[in-house]
């Protein structure tokens, strides 16, 4: 009978190198979008004299603020490992409901859309969290449903509700402070709150845990289903609020708005370094992603000779680069 010793040589673990790599990867993930944004701004400022003006910057900021608010909710959803395709339709529905309710005053114009859009988000969240249906399918149904509801309210788009000219509601989207529109301040404020919510509250930590490893989160005693419901509720509320702001800015509820907005929001979130599979991401990255999309559009408009549709081509290219880099980073991890 032969006897073999159990081989007891421990593998040397290059802890130092691994951890340094982790730090670099985290840095690239968190601040990659910011670095690219800074680069694009610097180059554009040098090339186009009309780019680095206060007026132009203000324009980019106000145009980006609506997408930014929608993308904020999307960031939370994607970090939980989900997706919310309904936000474009919900955004449009929120706008129409705000314009419709503005005849009764500014408060109903704010509360009615938030209630309806919140309810849509809540319903989607409940379906996803408690029936185990795929977020993609549930929110696709939400996209179609909200758009249908919108068309029903406006008689297939035949009615466009206008905000009364003297309504205080118009102040929300059109008012300015130090020459900068209110929507910009609101977006910045919401992002600050969102950052605190994500990084410094138990709910935020649970969002990361649910996306990073739902089984582990459940075993650690986190209320996984409730976290999911809250997250889709948040996304619905934010999309609705962005719609309200937009209606106030345009003085009317435009039915055809928001088609494909969900895709811009997803693109901004992913460009901002949030993992599409969930578990990691930042709201500051999303803000950079939104601004990057806004600046690209602005620059292409500056070039003049280029059709503005090229904006999508460039944004798409960025998206591919970001995803390739992300995949590369995580593949190296798996190989170690």
């Amino acid at each position: 009978m032969t006897q073999t010793l159990v081989n007891k040589t421990p593998q040397p673990v290059p802890v130092e190198r691994e951890q340094r790599y982790e730090r670099l990867a985290a840095l690239a993930q968190r601040h990659g979008a910011l670095a690219v944004l800074a680069l694009v701004v610097v180059v554009s400022s040098a090339v186009f004299p009309s780019f680095p003006t206060a007026e132009n910057a203000n324009g980019v900021a106000i145009q980006s603020s609506f997408l930014a608010i929608v993308a904020l909710g999307m960031t939370f959803v994607i970090i939980t490992g989900g997706i919310d395709l309904s936000v474009g339709s919900v955004f449009a529905l929120g706008g129409v409901l705000a314009a419709y309710a503005s005849q009764w005053g500014p408060l109903p114009a704010l509360l009615l859309p938030l209630a309806v859009c919140g309810a849509i988000g809540l319903l989607q969240g409940v379906l996803i969290a408690y029936t185990g249906m795929a977020p993609f399918i549930v929110t696709l149904a939400g996209l179609l449903g909200a758009r249908g509801l919108l068309l029903a309210i406006t008689e297939e788009g035949a009615n466009t509700y206008l905000v009364p000219k003297d309504s205080a509601f118009l102040e929300l989207g059109q008012g300015t402070l130090f020459g900068v529109g209110y929507p910009v301040y609101l977006a910045v404020l919401l992002f600050a709150l969102g950052g605190v919510l994500l990084q410094r509250t138990r709910y935020g930590q649970a969002v990361f845990a649910v996306g990073g490893s739902p089984d582990a989160a459940a075993l650690m005693g986190l209320p996984v289903a409730r976290i999911r419901v809250l997250t889709y509720l948040l996304s619905g509320l934010l999309a609705g609020f962005a719609g309200v702001l937009n209606a106030s800015r345009l003085s009317s509820g435009v039915t055809i708005l928001g088609v494909g907005l969900e895709l811009d929001a997803i693109a901004a979130v992913v460009i901002g370094g949030t993992l599409l599979i969930g578990g990691a991401g930042t709201v500051s990255g999303t803000l950079c992603g939104v601004l990057l999309l806004g600046v690209i559009q602005n620059v292409i408009n500056q070039i003049g000779s280029l059709n503005s549709s090229y904006q999508s081509v460039v944004s798409g290219g960025f998206l591919i680069v970001v995803v390739v880099v992300q995949t590369g980073l995580s593949r190296r991890r798996h190989l170690r």
């Binding site: 605190v196 509250t201 845990a209 990073g212 005693g221 578990g279």
Partner: peptide, 28 residues
């Protein structure tokens, strides 16, 4: 190991019972 690999060691250790400041925020 049933923990969340992408989250920090400390956050994993305290997940769901993080120490909080008097404002209710996590005392990182």
């Amino acid at each position: 190991v049933n923990l969340v690999p992408l989250m920090s060691v400390a956050r994993n250790l305290f997940l769901g019972r993080e120490p909080r400041t008097r404002f209710g925020l996590i005392d990182v």
